[in-house]
Every structure is written in structure tokens, then in C-alpha cells.
Design a protein around this nucleic acid. Structure first.
Lengths: 227, 227
DNA sequence: GATTTCCGAAAAATCGATTTTTTAAAAAAC
DNA sequence: GTTTTTTAAAAAATCGATTTTTCGGAAATC
């Protein structure tokens, strides 16, 4: 295992270029809803905001557009995708399907090492649950928990798509008004998922994961005004 | 419906920028295997090859890396991904799964308009079958047939991922030695898929599509030396 | 009064040059 | 003889300036 990465998201441990740093920062800001949905991005002000020149900034914007976190129109720059209810439904439904696929494979491939990593990830998530003021801590622990759950599925492309959908989904979820009651249920489900994983009860786990995403989907829908 | 697009791949009808033109050209060249697998791309020679400056070229390379047709390492540029048997297997298996999902939805949503578009796409594909020397014509008709088949599935994100996997898959398939016997079977299966689509025989269609991709997968494996 | 045409400002895209980093070979040290 | 250090060339990344295109309002036309 290489140098563990303490920082936030997916990470460039060595030789971060300006372009990759802006990419990471901008990606986080987009997912965290720091820009208004549908907003046109003024490249000039982004230059100031992220303290970089045009070239690395434009490279980052191009990557994000290819990834689906920005919309690019040929001679008129970049804009933040609008929040659309039908798109959220698409994202959530597909996420359920793909994550259930991955979960099945993960249950087959996961070994004792995986079980202990999952327990550890769950523990950190519970710790983060206790400090509701540290939102980003919780977000990171939550993301890692779900990653760990599916990690041994054996399909890099499936994991890639799931990650992409998760990023899309989170943009909606983080913009939606919080719902403490649902949140409590969601938190409990994480523990139940761990339990089912240990016992490899795939059918129940699939049903629970589907319900988990469905509940979160319901909350995330609050981010949309009209469809 | 806007202006139909006669040209090759996915298309920028209005105001093509240098960056988007290089992106399209480079993407095709990568899928067509015009670069050696694993090859390091020399940006200087790409500038000459595509007749553009650094900025639009680098923007195109960044998009392609985000899309998965190039590998990017931070201070050492871009390289063509190597051909790996295990990755091809991953791509093909996931493609089968996702396309079968989409097919089911397409059968439910597809209307008479879809049926006629599918018949038309199949007709063009058969015409292209007759002229084996016009490879690119056939490739285009083939891509469009499969797109048309799944188009009404109703999930933009699912279609997006399928398209992406299809591009990945084709890079292997087009590099593999052709197999006329299998090719004949594959051609026949296109007609059978149309027939099953008309009659909405979903289970048989899913089995056939799965077999179709599986057969093509077998051929594509010929592109890999070792795993 | 409504539509079209024509500017000028603003923004996007591109270019050419500069800076930074890597690479590989030669020299030095062990 | 091997390893380390140095250094020059090559490549990647970035910057600043220029060119091209879009956008919005004023003037002209219908």
C-alpha cells in the first residue's frame, strides 16, 4: 500500500499540477453546491478564485465537462448543470441497479481483510455521526464507507460509473434541506449493511441497499423546484 | 428534430472549435487503433498531425483522459492505455449487463416510430454488409444500429455509460484479427434482434444480445497478447 | 411600433513564448 | 564495477498577449 492519503477526496499524491489542483477544488465546489445550478461560469473570476492562469483552468473545466459535472457549449463556455427532477430520478435508479450489482460481486469476492476494512470504515462513520457540526468529516467518512462496501466487486469500470453517479447524486442531496428523521434511519442502515455483509446475506443486503438509496433519493428530491 | 447529422461520429453541428475538432479526430484515431497500445503521445507531433496549437490540443487530451480513452500522469503527459485481457473481460461483461437492462426498458418504451427507425437502421447495416471494402461505412451503420436499438430506454445516464463502454470495446475489437465465420453469425443476429424487438420477446432478445456481445467479445480477445 | 442592422464591449478560444519538471547520459565518488 | 551526482536536452505545464466569436444596446429601416 502506498502513502495513505489523509486529505479529502480522490487524490494526486505526487506532483500535483495546477490543472489537477483546480480540477479537484472545482469538483468539490460543484458537488458541495458552491455554485448556483444553471449558473454560467465566468472564467475570469475563476482565475482569481483559484489563483491559476487560463491554461490549467481551462484544462480542468474540460475534464469536468467530460466527467459530467459541467455543461460545455462550443463558443459560449461552461455552465453548471441545472437541477432536474427527472435527471435525479435517472441517477438514483441507475445507482441502485449498479450498486446492487457491485454488492453481489463484492459479497462473493470479499475476504476477511475486506470485512475488517468495512468494520473500520463503519466505525469512522459512526464517530463522524457524533459530530454533526463537522459536515465535511462526515461526508468523507460516508463516501469511504460506501466505497469500501463495494470495493472488492472486481469490476473497475462498474466502480468508476458508480463513483460518477455518486458524485452526481451528492450534488442534489447536499443541496436538499436536511431531514433528521430520515437521516437517522439512513445511519442505522449503514450498520445493518455491515451486519448483512458479514453474514453474506446477499438478498437482504440488496433490498436494504436499494431502500437506502431510495430513502436518500427522496431527501435529495428536495433540491429540485420543478421538473 | 434538428438537422440530421450525416457525418461519422457524435457531432458538433454548430461552431466547432479547434479543441472539439481535435477531440473528435483523436477519439476516432484511438478507437481505430491508429496509435500503438501503451504508446506515449508526443504532444509536439500531435500538433503537426492535427494542425492545431498547444491549447486546444491539450484541452482535447484532457477530455479524452477524463473519458477513459487516454491515461494521464501528472508531470509526464498522456499515453494510450495498454490492451489488457482482464480489462476487456470487464468491459464486455459490464456491457452485456447494461445493454440488457437498457434493452428491457427500450422494449417497454419503444413505439411504432422506434420500430421503423430500427428497421431503417438495420436496412442500412445490411447494405453496408454487402460492401466489405467500406469498413468505416459499416462501422458507422453498426454503431447506429446498436444505438437505435437501445435509444428509447429512457435513461440518459445508462446510454452514456453504454456508449462509453462501446467505445472502449471497439478499440479492442477493431485491433483483433477478423473472423469471417463469427462475423456471419453476428450479422445474422442483428436481423434476429430486430425480429424479437418487433414482437417484444424480451427474454429471448436479452439472451440473444448477451450471446451477441459474448461472441464479439471472443473475437476482440484476439487483440490481447498476454493478460 | 416592431424588426433588422450595425457597432463596441465582453467573453471565449487560440497562439507563441517562458518556466518548470523530467529524463537520460556523462562524470564523479565509493 | 557499481552507485551516486551532475548536467544538458527534452518534454510538460503555465503564462501573457492576440485573435475570434458572442452578446447587448443604439441606430436605422420597414
Amino acid at each position: 500500500m502506498s502513502t495513505p492519503n489523509v486529505s479529502g477526496a480522490a487524490s494526486p499524491p505526487t506532483g500535483a499540477t495546477a490543472a489537477s489542483r483546480v480540477f479537484d477544488a472545482l469538483k468539490q465546489d460543484l458537488i458541495r453546491g458552491r455554485f448556483a445550478a444553471g449558473e454560467k461560469l465566468a472564467i475570469g473570476s475563476l482565475k482569481t478564485r483559484y489563483q491559476v492562469g487560463l491554461s490549467p483552468l481551462r484544462e480542468a473545466l474540460n475534464r469536468l465537462a467530460a466527467y459530467g459535472l459541467l455543461e460545455q457549449v462550443n463558443q459560449r463556455g461552461f455552465r453548471v448543470p441545472p437541477l432536474r427532477l427527472d435527471e435525479l430520478d435517472d441517477i438514483a435508479d441507475l445507482r441502485s441497479q449498479l450498486e446492487c450489482m457491485a454488492l453481489t460481486q463484492a459479497f462473493q469476492n470479499g475476504d476477511a481483510e475486506w470485512e475488517s476494512l468495512l468494520l473500520a470504515a463503519h466505525h469512522r462513520l459512526r464517530r463522524a455521526d457524533e459530530r454533526p457540526q463537522e459536515v465535511e468529516e462526515w461526508e468523507q467518512a460516508h463516501l469511504r464507507f460506501h466505497r469500501t462496501l463495494l470495493a472488492p466487486c472486481g469490476s473497475p469500470w462498474l466502480l468508476r460509473f458508480i463513483e460518477q453517479l455518486h458524485d452526481q447524486f451528492d450534488r442534489y442531496r447536499r443541496l436538499a434541506p436536511p431531514n433528521p428523521e430520515v437521516r437517522e434511519v439512513l445511519d442505522r442502515q449503514h450498520g445493518e449493511l455491515v451486519q448483512l455483509a458479514m453474514e453474506r446475506r446477499i438478498e437482504q443486503a440488496r433490498a436494504l441497499l436499494d431502500e437506502h438509496i431510495g430513502l436518500s433519493h427522496g431527501v435529495a428530491r428536495g433540491a429540485c423546484s420543478a421538473s
